[in-house]
Structure formats: C-alpha cells, structure tokens
Computed example of a mutant assay.
Amino acid sequence: MLKDFADLSTPLVADACVRTGLPLRVAPPGIGAVVTGQRIAGPALPVRHYGSVDVFLEVFGGARHGDVLVIDNGGRTDEACVGDLAALEADRAGLAGLVVWGLHRDTPELAEVGLPVFSYGSLPAGPVRLDEREPEALSSARFGAHLVTGGDVVFGDADGVLFVAADRVEGVLDAARRIRDTELEQARRIRSGDTLRRQTAFADYLVLREADPSYTFRRHLRRLGGAIEE
C-alpha cells in the first residue's frame, strides 16, 4: 500500500474522495509524524487504549504484515500512550506504523526505531489510570469524529492523516493519480507563462457567473477538466 501511495499525497487522496463521492474522513488537525518526512499507508489495525500496554500486545497477535496500528486514546493531552517499547514490538510484528489519537513519548528512541509514528506530539508522562475496557477494544477505534475499523486503509504524510474504506481504495487512488497528472500539467504551464487564470478561462467564468449566480467555479472547472479545488 505504501508503494501505491509513494507518488501521491494526502491532499490528492482527499480530493479524490470528493471526486468519487466518498465522505471525507480526515484525522483532526495537528496529527503529524514524529520524524519529519515519514509517510504511512496500510490497512488499519484498530485498538482502544485504557491505560495499559496489554491491549497493544494483544492486538499485535492478530496483526498482518503492513498493518497500521490506529490507537484511540480519546485525543487526550494529559498522557502519552505509546513509546519506544510499543513501537519496537509493533515493528517486530510487521506493522507499517502507528497513528495515535493522542500523544507519544520517548521521541529520540522512536526516531531510532524508525517505524513511522503519527500523533499530536510528545509528553513525558505515561498513563496512571486504568479504565474499564470496552467490548470494541480490538475491533474499532475512534479518531476524532470518525470510527476506524479493519475495513479501512490509513494514509499519512506531512499534511496529516486520513482514512478510506478498503473497498474504495483502488478507485480513490486512480482518481488521485488523474488529479495529480492534471495538476502537474497545470503547474508546468504556469511556470512556462500560461497563467492559471488563462488555463481556467477565468474571465469567461466571471461572465458566466454574472449571467447565472448559481454557476460555481467548481462546475466551471469540471467542464474544462481542471483539478484545482478537487
């Protein structure tokens, strides 16, 4: 999956979701890689954290090579729920990385492990609580407004993290490649002196909008085959 995502980005995947009519499921702002430049892509392995590492060790038993551990820690900012030992164990289990709705710790050690980890940031303190475990602990994870299951795929890069239903991934990635190719050509033409306003017949758009206020720029671009805004 990371190979398929190698020449794409989360903005392109997000635009492709819009293009294909798929609801956007984007992680809350602020989720980023511990090590700058790391990227992540793979089937979701969801888990909910309740204060103890045992739930991670349990879920690793059913992990597939290339899975991405999606950790629901409720977006908490008062504790770090993963560190170097969890990352090392995940790496040995064949996982492609970790995405945390919460915080991490052991930043230098995580960088040394090398397994991509995405979170809100770091905090020295680990959990001191032990909450009651839910029946869905190993079957789904909340991540902001979204519920992530094993039927999802995770994508992450410098712009953030998003989730796509596995049965729609192929179509979304195909659409993302088409958008990428269109945008690359548009960028090439801008650098050659052909402005984006000229490429998008923006003057014509203003005339058409004046005649029909319901005529949107997005509708105009779709007529022309442009990719900006999608």
Results as ranks from 00 to 15, higher is better:
residue 167 D to S: 10
residue 228 I to L: 12
residue 226 G to Q: 05
residue 155 F to G: 08
residue 146 H to L: 03
residue 17 C to D: 00
residue 172 V to R: 05
residue 229 E to M: 06
residue 175 A to Q: 10
residue 5 F to G: 14
residue 158 A to Y: 07
residue 180 R to S: 03
residue 221 L to Y: 10
residue 77 T to S: 14
residue 191 R to G: 00
residue 6 A to I: 02
residue 215 Y to S: 06
residue 39 R to Q: 15
residue 126 G to V: 01
residue 191 R to K: 15
residue 15 D to V: 00
residue 53 V to C: 14
residue 34 V to G: 04
residue 177 R to F: 00
residue 16 A to T: 04
residue 96 A to N: 11
residue 205 Y to T: 03
residue 46 P to S: 06
residue 31 I to E: 01
residue 181 D to G: 08
residue 128 V to C: 14
residue 123 L to D: 06
residue 57 L to S: 05
residue 190 I to Q: 06
residue 14 A to Y: 05
residue 89 E to N: 01
residue 2 L to M: 14
residue 125 A to K: 15
residue 110 L to T: 12
residue 172 V to Y: 09
residue 20 T to Q: 05
residue 28 P to F: 02
residue 92 R to E: 08
residue 212 D to Y: 08
residue 15 D to E: 08
residue 209 R to F: 10
residue 94 G to M: 04
residue 27 A to T: 02
residue 53 V to S: 14
residue 30 G to D: 12
residue 157 D to P: 04
residue 37 G to E: 05
residue 124 P to N: 01
residue 38 Q to A: 14
residue 157 D to Q: 04
residue 107 T to F: 00
residue 76 R to G: 15
residue 29 P to W: 02
residue 52 S to C: 12
residue 88 L to R: 15
residue 166 A to C: 01
residue 36 T to L: 03
residue 57 L to V: 00
residue 126 G to Q: 10
residue 181 D to M: 04
residue 122 S to R: 05
residue 177 R to Y: 06
residue 181 D to A: 02
residue 26 V to G: 01
residue 70 V to Y: 00
